[in-house]
């Protein structure tokens, strides 16, 4: 899985392309830790091109959410695809990780 990020005016967007499984999960944690350490604690993880997520990937997102909140910010997700939506719903984590239609919309009203 490939990750990239871009720091915007009011948030940082982390994009993941591929499968967010146990192989990719530690990489996501590293990328978000780097983004938060650089001073952007409002993070959107854009999952529009993430076609698969397992419980390790979900665990990494929760870890990243905690890291962002500890730094005084928040982590939101956008562009959630059907398989990822299913995993969020079955684990009841859709209430904790709020999904937005786009990265722009995630912090749009804050």
């Amino acid at each position: 899985m490939q990750f990239s990020y871009e720091v915007k005016d009011s948030y940082a967007e982390v994009k993941g392309v591929g499968r967010l499984n146990m192989v990719a999960a530690p990489k996501l944690r590293e990328v978000v830790a780097e983004v938060v350490a650089s001073g952007s604690s409002r993070v959107v993880v854009n999952l529009a091109e993430t076609d698969f997520m397992d419980s390790s990937g979900l665990g990494a997102l929760i870890g990243c959410l905690k890291a962002a909140r500890q730094a005084g910010g928040d982590l939101r997700i956008s562009g959630v695809q059907p398989q990822v939506k299913m995993v969020l719903e079955l684990t009841n984590m859709d209430r904790v990780l709020t999904a937005y239609p786009s990265a722009e919309a995630a912090f749009g009203n804050d």
């Binding site: 397992d54 419980s55 390790s56 979900l58 665990g59 929760i62 009841n92």
Partner: peptide
């Protein structure tokens, strides 16, 4: 909710 692992078998 804040656990970062342990959901695999339930899933």
């Amino acid at each position: 909710e804040d656990a970062e692992s342990g959901r695999g078998l339930a899933l």
